[in-house]
Design a protein around this nucleic acid. Sequence first.
DNA 1: TTCAAATGTCTCAAAAATGAGAAATATTTT
DNA 2: AAAATATTTCTCATTTTTGAGACATTTGAA
Lengths: 189, 189
Amino acid sequence: METTQQKIIDAAIEVFNVDLSANLEVVADHAQVTRRTLHRYFKDRAQLMEACQTEMQGKCRSAMMAAIKSSTDPLAQLEQMLYAGIDCGSKYAFLDKLQQHPPYRQMPDTPEGEFDEIKKQWFAIVTGLQKTGIISAELTPAWIFVLFGGMVTTTINALGSGNVARNDIKRFALFSFSRSIGIHTNTNE
Amino acid sequence: METTQQKIIDAAIEVFNVDLSANLEVVADHAQVTRRTLHRYFKDRAQLMEACQTEMQGKCRSAMMAAIKSSTDPLAQLEQMLYAGIDCGSKYAFLDKLQQHPPYRQMPDTPEGEFDEIKKQWFAIVTGLQKTGIISAELTPAWIFVLFGGMVTTTINALGSGNVARNDIKRFALFSFSRSIGIHTNTNE
DNA sequence: TTCAAATGTCTCAAAAATGAGAAATATTTT
DNA sequence: AAAATATTTCTCATTTTTGAGACATTTGAA
């Protein structure tokens, strides 16, 4: 079974991903725990946030690493990275969001350093794909990066909307993402 | 010049789009106004929220309407709707977000009714495009709808990241969106 | 069953956010 | 420049959120 501490962290990531300053009562509820219990594990909001950071970084980083190692074909790597992002769900989306806008206030200033390494590899893969003409060179890597994050968020929203079948999601996401970055080969269909 | 009230509403939409429960100080700062002034225009948070709703609904609705009326070609309509969404920026993104997750707490329950009309037309256009085989029938309209909203958010993020030139944004967005929904014709390039 | 750890309940005090009055300033209008 | 309006500053009371102590209750392992 999942440890209570873990339940709280997961709940926090989900809730904060939707509402960055949701109060801790909401997080506790979502974790099906009393606020009192939450406070027993995390001295304060900052500490909980930090735990979220660590969790997100760790999970996403290793999932991305695995994705990269899963193949030497850059296109397959990118596909696996997309799936990794989707599997990490709000972990990835939230992390991505925090990196983008260092929010108007507070937040333990994202140390990020760790994630940067992955990002570097991600860019290497994408520019590689552009150089070999497999994906369009019309788009900039920076745009493609934002697209990537956007696609993960989109899958979360799709799931949450209740109008897209869970089994379709990854297929749809790959279909849409690969086309959106101007892929030139034919994906299976 | 822009009225103070308007400045506050715009600031609120931008801030709340990033952090739904950001405190009013942040909104006031962002609007370059004292919290005291903000409170002179809006009795409380709920009232400010309501004003945001109205603003978002109004602006987005009319922009979407205009987009639809701009042509009888459904593909052109969809393109203009995308641009409308992008121009509305966080107005659209925030509205979209609120419709998706009625957030864990509070919020004047979105009356939405108004926006529903547009949504209906949007779906009509998309299913029409699918019937005529102009866009892939492999994807469901529901997914395409989430994609649409996601693309607007993506443009906001791209802009915010500072790594994508403002002048490229719409072109990139159209390129990526039209391909992501599995368009079969060739767009200009 | 029995003990220990974990969690819930109730309570309370400190801190932060909210909303507003009153007077001082600044801005616009005439 | 005077009047009218809008905004800021400072202040204060209220409410909400936060963090924690003390003790009851549950749960799980021996």
